[in-house]
Amino acid sequence: MAIEKENFSRRDFIKNSSMFAGGVVFASLINPYKFVFATKQPKGKGKWYGIGIDIEKCIGCGSCARACKIENDVPDDPFFFRNWVEQYTITNDERILVSSPNGGIDGFKQPVPDEDIYKTFFVPKMCNHCAKSPCTQVCPVGASFESPEGLALVDQSYCIGCGYCVQACPYGCRYIDPLKGVVDKCTLCYHRLEKGLDPACMMACPTGARVYGDLNDKNSAVSLFLKEHNCAVLKPQLNTESKLFYNDLSQEVH
């Protein structure tokens, strides 16, 4: 019989297990967060992508959402988006009306007459490519991951389609592709970036409301955007370290 553990004494057991426990404690002292955010990349090496959106410049044409659907083969149905536009209207009697008919692809209708409007604006939405992304944290098989460039990507040939990441994303940026049975999301058009092209939404924006670039490069479009504007991220209380920065973000926007 292969298992001969008669002389494996209790003292040995205690010794070994305390060494193991000590190792774990020691490892967590060196980097206590490593166990929580295993996917977090050390900042400062290579590119670290960020996105800036200027709400003051968004005209709500929906070109970004349309281009995104074409570029990435997102299903045409009005409930799968990697990228969409919302229209916020705050009335004089302080009602907040939000709409995003077909993600803004077919244009918007203002639901209130001009004289009743206190404030109104468009907010384009897309993946925030969070540095501490709650979605990649919960992926059970490592199909959703943060690339070394700081992009939250999905390995669709490995995704099991459990939908846990869809639940974990606070911004509603993920969906399960019903035909493929796997999750799909914005990649910041990683395939275009690698070919030296701009992401489809950035390219399609007629007013230059969207910028992107390397946050480590202080002269990149997004770094200059952050320098020149007072920016805010969505849901900062969740500490996702979102890398999608909005200029002129109203507090009504969730």
């Binding site: 295993a38 944290q137 059970p140 490592g142 490995y158 099991i160």
Partner: peptide
């Protein structure tokens, strides 16, 4: 693809 959860578990995931 369920077996992936046991073969390559992602240790930060509760699932």
């Amino acid at each position: 693809r369920f077996y992936e959860m046991l073969i390559t578990p992602h240790l930060t995931s509760a699932m």
